[in-house]
């Protein structure tokens, strides 16, 4: 139990980092109604770009900006495969993801794993987040504000604020309309293909950024780091929705729910590993099961347990 409690801050930190990715998944899966599998590749791309640039002495923010742009480029490729080449969205994402494996290897100099030299205090100090800050911020070797929960929490808050603004603009509204009803969107003069590409760019940019954060947190980037990322993203989106959809109506709060969903996911996973003594290799199976179950519940609810519609009294007003 003490092991689990002491692992909690770390789990929450990781959850917050994956939450950034989950917000990216929310944009494609919930807003655009596209299941984008590019994510599994573009997550690693972010880490790969970051680890190489940072190691060669580039400023941490610039390296993260580069990771963002690389992810956006991956999203652009999937978007063009889908809209210009007419490939179904799921397959377009799989193709990009597969290709990205080679690209990610090439970025990392054909090494399956590249580490940041965090044993050097100077290098460690330049990072935005690190596993070492989780303990360090609490035992006083680092200032408290360097705790990953605070740093990534702030990062997420700023991100949500920007997205809230963006989806309230004309351009953002055209993305939402495209996902809600493409026929209507086109009839209102919205280029739905362009909107989809924009959404995929935005989403994969965030996913890649999340990859860059996790790379810093772990102190290394591994070629397999993004494997199953889409499932974690979906889990976070669904957990957030199941728990908060009744209370969080506002768009910014919905994004917050996704982030919280990711934290809950990581805490549950940590609990299972620490308390249940489960072999970590069963994690992927567990994740897949959790997501499958959560996707099944609303479907079965509608199919087998739908309540008969009660006739309303004010028929005239409600059904005019």
């Amino acid at each position: 139990m003490t092991g689990f409690l002491s692992a909690l801050p770390g789990a929450a930190s990781q959850g917050l980092i994956w939450g950034v990715m989950a917000i990216g998944v929310y944009i494609t899966y919930k807003i655009l109604d596209i299941a984008d599998l590019t994510v599994d590749g573009s997550f690693c791309t972010g880490g790969a770009v970051f680890v190489m640039l940072f190691s060669s002495g580039v400023n941490v923010w610039l390296a993260m900006l580069a990771a963002l742009l690389a992810g956006m480029l991956a999203g652009l490729v999937t978007g063009l495969l889908h809209t210009v080449c007419g490939i179904p969205a799921i397959l377009a994402g799989i193709l990009t993801q597969l290709g990205l494996y080679s690209v990610n290897m090439a970025i990392m100099d054909m090494k399956a794993s590249v580490a940041l030299s965090i044993t050097q205090q100077e290098t460690l100090g330049r990072l935005l987040v690190s596993l070492r800050f989780v303990k360090g911020a609490l035992d006083g070797s680092y200032p408290i504000w360097r705790h990953p929960i605070i740093v990534v929490g702030l990062f997420t808050a700023v991100l949500i604020a920007i997205l809230y603004w963006y989806f309230g603009t004309e351009l953002g509204a055209s993305l939402r309309a495209t996902g809600s009803n493409p026929n209507m969107a086109r009839a209102q003069g919205i280029d739905t293909d362009r909107a989809k590409v924009l959404g995929l760019i935005l989403s994969n940019g965030l996913v890649s950024l999340s990859g860059a954060l996790l790379c810093q947190y772990n102190g290394a980037n591994d070629i397999n780091v993004g494997r199953g990322a889409i499932v974690i993203g979906l889990a976070a989106v669904i957990i957030g929705e199941v728990l908060f959809s009744k209370v969080f109506i506002n768009f910014a709060l919905k994004l917050l729910a996704v982030s919280i969903g990711a934290i809950i996911y990581y805490i549950v996973i940590t609990a299972v590993l620490q308390l249940g003594g489960l072999n970590a290799n069963y994690l992927k199976l567990l994740s897949a099961l959790v997501v499958a179950i959560f996707l099944t519940i609303p479907y079965w609810k509608g199919k087998y347990f739908s309540k008969p519609v009660k006739p309303t009294k004010k028929e005239e007003n409600t059904h005019a």
Binding site: T169, E170, L171, G172, A173, S174, G189, I190
Partner: peptide, 17 residues
Amino acid sequence: MALAARRGRARTLRPGI
């Protein structure tokens, strides 16, 4: 309605409504 009010115009980063 705001989407319809912008039919045929370039959609920019101005407020959606």
